[in-house]
Amino acid sequence: MDTLGLLNYAIFMGVLIGIYALLSLGLNVQWGYAGLFNAGVAGFFAVGAYLSALFTAPPVPDRIMGWELPTGVGWFAAMAAAALIAWPIGKVTLRFRSDYLAIATIGVAEIIRLVLRTEDLLSGGVRGITGIPRPFGDLPYEWSQLAYLGLTWGMVVVIYWALERQLAAPWGRMMRAIRENELAAAAMGKNVEARRLEAFILGAAIMGLAGAVYVHFMRAITPEAIDPMMVTFLVWIMLILGGSGNNRGAILGAVIIWVIWSSSELLTDRLPAEIATQAKYIRVFVIGLMLQLVLRWRPEGLLPEGTHVRRSS
C-alpha cells in the first residue's frame, strides 16, 4: 500500500470510467435526445467488443476470424458493426413505444449474448477470445495503464465534442422537438421515424466503440463480460443519476457510479473478518440503497438538462 499503488488504482478506475462514460454518452443520444428506451446496451457493447477483438486478434484454428489488423481498424469496424446491426433492430423495434422497446431490446441483447456463448466458430464460444493486442501494451505496467487512460479519455473527449456540436446543430434541436412532442414535429414536416433511427444508430455506434475500447484494455473477452446487470443496467443508472439529456451529466454519472461501485468494496471490507464473505452481499445491498437515496433526493439527476420542459412518459 503506497501512493504509487493508489495511483495505479486511480488510473485503472479512470479507464473503466472512461469506457462507461462512452456507453453513457451513447445511451444519452438514444434516451436523452431521442427518448428511446434502449435496454439492450449490452448487445451493442458486445458487438463492438467482439468485432474489434476478431479483427485484431491472432487467428486460431476453430474460429473463422482473427485477422491481426491494427487496433484502429478494429475500433472503426466496431463502430460500423454496431451501427450496422442497430439499423435493422431499430427499423423493427422503434415502432414500439417506451417499455415495449425496452423489452424488445433486452430480448435482442440476450439473443446476441446466447449466440456469442454458443457459436464457437464465430466468437470462440464460452472460452472467448484471448491474445487481443493493447495499444501501448508493451510499455511497463504503470506507463501502459497511463497511456491507455489517455487514449480512452481522448475518445471520450472526441465523442463528447462531436455530440455537443451535433446537439447544437439543427439536428439536435429537431431531436428534442421530436422527443417533446412527436405529433407537432411530424406536423411541421419532420421525418420522425428517420430521425429516431438516426439517433438509435448513432448511439449504438458509440456503444460499439466503448466495447472496442474495453476489449483492448482487458486483452481478452468472454461472454461473461456482457452481463446485462454490469453493462445495460449500470449504464442506465449512470445516465439517470448524472442527468439524462446532458452529456456532461452522462459522464459525471459514470464517474460517480463507478467510484461508488468500486470503492464500496473498500467500505464493506472493514466489517469484521468473520462476515467477510457476507460483506460482499452487503456491498450489493449498499449499492442498491445508494441508488434509492439518490432517486429520493436528486431524481432529476445531478446535472439536469438545460431545458425547462419536463418529459412525461
Binding site: 500500500m1 503506497d2 499503488g5 488504482y9 473503466l16 461473461e224 454490469m230 468494496e265 471490507d269 460482499k280
Partner: peptide, 25 residues
C-alpha cells in the same frame, strides 16, 4: 489475507484485482 469478489465477471474481477494489487498490496 483479504477477500475480494470477482463476481465471475471480467469488469468486477479486474476492478477487484486492481484493488487487491494496488490498494491491499
Amino acid at each position: 489475507y483479504q477477500e475480494f469478489d470477482c463476481g465471475c465477471n471480467p469488469q468486477v474481477a479486474t476492478d477487484a484485482a486492481t484493488k487487491a494489487v494496488n490498494v491491499f498490496g
